[in-house]
Design a protein around this nucleic acid. Structure first.
Lengths: 144, 144
DNA sequence: AAGATATTGAAAACAATTTTCAGAAATTAG
DNA sequence: CTAATTTCTGAAAATTGTTTTCAATATCTT
């Protein structure tokens, strides 16, 4: 099922309304570079849809997160970011502290070790976050 | 070297002053349960030292972080927390999403895998954060 | 002890996020 | 199709956590 259908299903399930703003925001959100903050997306939308307000963008992003279309991320810069979820494997992030580059990665072995740590403490894991902060290859090179 | 000495050295290195507030805050910070938010520590201090202001607590916690006595943590609840650092191994956290319990753990194998992920992307890791969110053993049991 | 400099606490400023509210839009009922 | 009901929107205001300002005070140096 595609994301648009998933969103519409969620709206009707919850008795919410299918508005033009929500569809425009979804389309823009899905169509490009990930890791949007509310502000990022608001500014991008404003170019073609200057009527859409900041609060609506923010509310809609929260709605995406609620229905599983987006995941909330926080990379410690004081802004919450949202990234599209496409039902793929869970992934984690490398974050360049100099240029802001964000790279996604998957490492099933780490996930397994996390499970074993949780088991040791009789913890039931619901989700996790792993971020590696440092310099990307370009910034590392520039640093020499 | 103990933490008090480390703090005093840092102060004189930076030409900062050794005030009674700073010492009281350090003592209280080190003397008990970790993972304080500014507010937590402010409220705790207020019992015995009602004159100490919120801003001073906050500034002092930042100072601890600067000189390596404290580490800043953010568990996604919108509050920055500070935990005492005692020069031990780096550790990560299990966070109970129901009762708020925080358990620390170390898993060197995970650290190694992180290094290999970074190497794959020619990334130079400066630091990382790993948090496992879920239910602690007690909340898991209560959930049945 | 005096002078120079940093610190304090209260309040104001900030930044990100969330809420309020009245008018507008979407859905449902008739 | 129209009216009635309910949700949504956008602008502005409110909230929350954090940071800064500033005048009075404390600390350090000589």
């Amino acid at each position: 099922m595609d994301q648009l259908q998933k969103f519409k299903d969620y709206l009707s399930l919850k008795g919410l309304k299918n508005t033009s703003q929500r569809l425009v925001i979804l389309e823009t959100f899905l169509s490009s570079e990930s890791h949007y903050s509310t502000e990022d997306l608001y500014l991008k939308l404003r170019i073609e849809h200057p009527k859409i307000g900041y609060a609506t963008v923010h509310r809609t992003l929260k709605l995406f997160a609620e229905c599983g279309i987006a995941a909330e991320r926080n990379f410690g810069d004081g802004q919450t970011r949202f990234e599209p979820v496409h039902g793929e494997e869970h992934h984690d992030h490398l974050v360049c502290t100099r240029c802001g580059l964000i790279i996604e990665f998957e490492e099933p072995q780490i996930e397994k070790l996390q499970e074993s740590v949780a088991a040791t403490h009789q913890f039931t894991i619901e989700n996790h976050r792993l971020e590696l902060y440092g310099l990307c290859s370009i910034c590392t090179a520039a640093d020499l």
